[in-house]
Amino acid sequence: MMEFCGINPAVLVASLMVASVPILLAAIGELVVEKSGVLNLGVEGMMIMGAICGFITAVSTGSPLLGFLGGAAGGAVLSLMFAFLTQVLLANQVATGLALTLFGLGLSSLMGQGYNGIKPPLTEALNFGPLSDIPVLGRILFSHDWVVYASVAIIAAVWAVLKYTRTGLILRAVGENHDAAHALGYKVGLVRLLAILFGGALAGMGGAYLSLVRVPQWTDGITAGAGWIALAIVVFASWKPWRVLIGGYLFGGISVLQLNLQACGSRIPVEYLSMSPYLITILVLVIMSSGRGRAALNAPASLGQSFHASR
């Protein structure tokens, strides 16, 4: 095994950072939603709406940056529907989330008619000048487009806000015990609405990264289940922001690694390689949760429950 089957670790890390961006963005958004006590299973639907809205915006304005804004807006608008149903009409969150996915897949395909076979404007890697020529580190740290850095920065920001600010405190209070938060005078509905919008916007941005950078083109069903993985990553992270990064990079890393192992002619059977991202994610979660014994209990206490202010 020369150089571990010819796989350059620096290149592998650089690839997994790019590969993980969509699920990282969607997962950190969903984390905020769930921290506020709301379970939105519609991530896949919001992602694909972001993918098409971002694609249309970028193609018609010629600006990839506006594309990402358009994608975030698309995801947020769809999440607004979820918010109306679950927060105002107190509909069941699990079912509404799944309906959102169904609706998003359908609507995105309708909107995308006529956008097949078009190449969107290019999102360039940032120019770090000589920094990107540093061996190993240059490739890992200074070779990406802005969204890769943004995804990490957003995770850091969410962590800081949740941990150190009053906003974070209110958000957690609402998620842990909405009756108590209400009694303290916090507007439970408003907090949750904003959290849902934030989650929708980030899922939309993640979707836009798929249609504008990763693939880049529009095809029906382009997200191919990425939203479900994002949901799993939030659980994996046991609702802790930095663990979202670990989970996303672990899953993305194994997915990229298994393809690299195939490409270099490894003798491990392909079907086991293709299962490996899922199995290893389970395995790592088992190790993490058995060590602490309390990881599963970290879920926000009001998660998935409707709130109705009786007074």
């Binding site: 990763r214 693939v215 083109q217 382009i222 490409a263």
Partner: peptide
């Protein structure tokens, strides 16, 4: 070199497979 995606449709995975081959 052959890489099996083990899916009919997942554009992002195709991108990763191409990248792995290029590497």
């Amino acid at each position: 070199s052959v890489v099996w995606a083990y899916t009919w449709f997942d554009p992002a995975k195709e991108a990763d497979a191409a990248k792995a081959l290029i590497e």
